[in-house]
Write a protein that binds this DNA or RNA. Structure first.
Length: 458
RNA sequence: GGCGCGGUGGCAGAGUGGUCAUGCAGCGGACUGCAACUCCGUUAACGCCGGUUCGAUUCCGACCCGCGCCUCCA
């Protein structure tokens, strides 16, 4: 078993060698809870959930932390406009987030730390950074001095000169250097805040991840992940804080970043009005279909998202579940999953498109195989699919579960089918076809076979 | 301006120096009372121009086009 991962820090695919094979640690940046999540927010969650599943299969223990940022200026503004407490706002959107992510078959991470519950840890880390000379207090702000750190910018591959050369940053007057970033900032009377040695205030964006990773996973994590856009400044700054607080020890051994999702070739943005909320998509598509679409592209490449993709993914899943339906009564027979091509594809930097293609190959092979081989193929198919978070529901449920409230009830459908059976038996094909056509207009498709008639919702 | 990424068949999307990705869609056929499902067969691609090579979609160079990041957006 050899796992290769692309490390953003070295810009190359590397053999994954954990610090301690008995306990793998992974930290992924979670959401700021101020709105419902869109499909772009869902991509890292699905990607790292898939990695989590793979790691759990390879190692005895995996501690996977995905934080919730529940204190942030965007949350504050929303709370203020609605006359609510930030806690109410954050809690509500956290619940939505959990709900949406669960609908996409994402497992719950081992740890889900909240920023507001780690303020003491952040204050402690900030104090250490000041003691060590990496941070300074200025006018109620505490700032990290990027010039004090050797190799600042190495993660994202940029130098201070280049960063500031073409930058159009307004330099705040409390900064000693334009590239310095905030660890702690003052809160006005009406704003949420916590007491600190530097006055009442709130944490900067980056410090929470450093503090929470340290507390729950230790000074160095094996894998740190997030979206491509977090590489700079967020991860660069996290790395700087942690590294300097820990006397040079690296924050992460492997940095992983997923690419963006575009909508019809354009970046998703509120100004373009083209962002797709997961909750909206879920009203029309099963979560598993959305997950399939996300996994159909390699996580590092850009993905172009549009409605036809969802439809194609749905049909692909129909095909896979169709094979499983015909094997419903078959007992799976265990084989070594790690020998499966789909498993190997995942070990190669999470090549999910190849793994998906293997699902189709396995399903087809299973359909044609007999005896033990058929049972083994079922095991392999379900096993690889499980690593992808797919195909784990009962095929009959997949095909017959009602998608809306006005959908035809199952017993009504069964009654229509037996009426059609009688018509067929008496040679009255006109009536039989009429019944079938009626069902079809109500979203029910019939499939005759020697064993009888099966139905599914189309 | 700085750093980086990508251009593959109708759509999506892997991969490779020399038969095949795969899925969805299309086309032809089998099965079926007719369909659906399934099966068999099949069409179709590697931005442009050079170079290296016996051979390049794959390596090298130029060009064209598209895209991302450069302080709080996954």
């Amino acid at each position: 078993m050899t796992l290769y991962l692309y490390n953003s820090a070295t810009r190359s695919k590397q053999l994954f060698e954990p610090q301690n094979p008995e306990r793998i640690t992974m930290y992924v940046c979670g959401p700021t809870v101020y709105n419902r999540v869109h499909i772009g927010n869902a991509r890292p969650v699905v990607v790292f959930d898939t990695l989590f599943r793979l790691l759990k299969d390879c190692y005895p223990r995996v501690d996977y932390a995905r934080n919730i940022t529940d204190i942030d200026d965007k949350i504050m503004h929303l709370a203020a406009t609605r006359g609510e407490d930030i806690k109410q706002v954050a809690q509500r959107y956290t619940e939505y987030y959990v709900e949406d992510m669960a609908a996409l078959n994402n497992l719950t991470p081992t740890l889900v730390p909240l920023a507001t519950e780690h303020v003491p840890e952040m204050l402690d880390m900030i104090a250490r950074l000041i003691d060590k000379g990496y941070a300074y207090n200025s006018d109620g702000h505490v700032l990290f001095s990027v010039q004090k750190m050797d190799g600042y910018g190495a993660l994202s591959g940029r130098s201070l000169e280049h960063m500031l050369a073409g930058a159009r940053v307004e330099v705040a007057d409390y900064k000693r250097y334009a590239g310095d970033f905030v660890l702690w900032k003052p809160s006005a009377e009406h704003e949420p805040g916590w007491p600190s040695p530097w006055g009442r205030g709130r944490p900067g964006w980056h410090i929470e991840c450093s503090a929470m990773a340290e507390k729950h996973l230790g000074e160095t994590v094996d894998i740190h992940g997030g979206g491509q856009d977090l590489l700079f400044p967020h991860h660069e700054n996290e790395r700087a804080q942690s590294c300097c607080a820990h006397d040079g020890k690296p924050l992460a051994r492997y940095w992983m970043h997923n690419g963006f999702i575009n909508i019809d070739g354009e970046k998703m943005s509120k100004s373009l009005g083209n962002f797709k909320l997961v909750s909206d998509l879920l009203t029309q598509y099963p979560g598993e279909v959305i997950r399939y679409v996300v996994l159909s592209a390699h996580y590092r490449s850009e993905q172009n998202f549009h409605v036809e993709l969802l439809n194609a993914a749905w049909r692909s899943l129909d095909s896979l579940y169709g094979f499983l339906r015909t094997a419903n009564d078959l007992d799976a027979l265990a084989v070594d999953l790690k020998a499966a091509a789909g498993y190997k594809a995942l070990l190669d930097d999470l090549n999910t498109p190849i793994a998906l293609s293997e699902l189709h190959r396995l399903a087809r092979d299973m359909q044609q195989a007999t005896g033990q081989r058929r049972q083994q193929l079922k095991y392999e198919l379900l096993g690889v699919a499980d690593l992808l978070g797919l195909l784990q529901q009962n095929p009959d449920d997949w095909f017959t579960r009602a998608r809306s409230n006005d959908a035809m009830a199952a017993d009504e459908i069964e009654a229509a089918i037996s009426a059609r059976q009688s018509a067929k038996a008496s040679g009255d094909y006109g009536t039989a076809d009429e019944i079938r056509k009626n069902l079809e207009t109500r979203g029910v498709i019939l499939e005759d076979s020697r064993q009888g008639t099966q139905w599914r919702r189309g």
